[in-house]
Design a protein around this nucleic acid. Structure first.
Lengths: 192, 192
DNA sequence: GTCTATACTGTGATAGAC
DNA sequence: GTCTATCACAGTATAGAC
């Protein structure tokens, strides 16, 4: 793998673990096995490298979510598939995490991919819910946009609860609680 | 106000804004209008001062939540009151925020108040939901613990979405989406 | 109690040799 | 392209004067 690739991947890991503020160029270089000069040859500085890493992570997250949401099954089943997909819960969300980073939120360029990714996810989930309503798989009264926001928030908030508790259990509760509520709005009442 | 008090309040503000990793003793001293020696006289170092600040913030958050949850009204109304209470949404949660701080999560002493506060909140909300079920204000099938976790997650996740978007709108959607789902489980169907 | 001086390490970046 | 040397500055803490 090229040095630039290794630098990007190391940055992805460190941003996930420690955030932007908590990640130093030195730490990135050490993890990538690259020298200082090498890093500053490929990237103009920390923000530039972080941007490349954030974009890469955003792409990957989008692909993972799309795989769940475009799977076969009813709308409820696809939402359930997204909510119950395997996750390393205690690591949290590599994109959502960045919203707590003051330097990321303050810089429109760095915040860009974060905003786009979470917007896309809400929009995509809203499509699935709307489809479900059209097909009669969900109650007509279910509001797609709001429901989609609740689904994404359950995941993001679940990570917060799990990390506070030092255990994935509260994440599972939060997700299952929402799934219980959604199942009650799916006319055929599938098992949650 | 005493110097120690000013140091604690400055630390509360900075932890909320920039997190533990992003907050330096120097920045705290400047905001508090205190010298270095003064800070190290009252506190043994950054972790000690941060602990005092986190404990203070945790107390305050608990008091605010308890005020909503012990208000008069049905269980649904009290949960709604908690969810719709005024918030500075873009600032996020001063306690939930800390779960993304690697140095806080790694230190059991600093994580302690964070864990206790969010555990207490879930437990307290579960009591309210359980009471509602007993009184017939909620469907008997509603699981108190799971529902409580979903409520807290909606708020914490709502903050993430709002900060990503640079707007409180997605927070409101997530909260309202959950409220819609909960209203459908309250036999008298109050307006959400 | 509060201040200034000091020390040491880490951060983020540049310069120039190879 | 990659390396090492160097830099200015911030982070964290201690020492000792007042």
């Amino acid at each position: 793998m090229s040095t630039a690739e290794r630098l990007i991947e190391s940055t992805q890991d460190l941003l996930w673990e420690r955030g932007y503020v908590g990640t130093s160029p030195k730490a990135i270089q050490q993890r990538a096995g690259a020298g200082q000069g090498s890093m500053y040859h490929h990237f103009s500085g920390k923000p530039d490298l972080a941007l490349a890493a954030i974009r890469r992570t955003a792409e990957q997250m989008r692909a993972t979510a799309e795989a769940c949401l475009s799977a076969p099954g009813t709308a409820y089943e696809r939402v359930r598939g997204y909510l119950l997909r395997e996750r390393d819960v205690l690591r949290g969300c590599p994109i959502g995490r960045l919203t707590m980073d003051p330097d990321v939120i303050a810089d429109p360029v760095l915040r860009g991919p974060v905003e786009e990714t979470l917007d896309w996810l809400r929009g995509r989930l809203a499509e699935v819910v709307a489809e479900g309503v059209e097909r009669g798989e969900f109650d007509a009264g279910l509001a797609p946009e709001r429901t989609a926001a609740s689904v994404v928030a359950a995941v993001q908030g679940g990570y917060v609860l799990a990390r506070a508790a030092g255990s994935p259990a509260p994440f599972d509760s939060a997700v299952q609680g929402l799934l219980d509520l959604l199942a009650a709005r799916a006319p055929h009442r599938p098992a949650p």
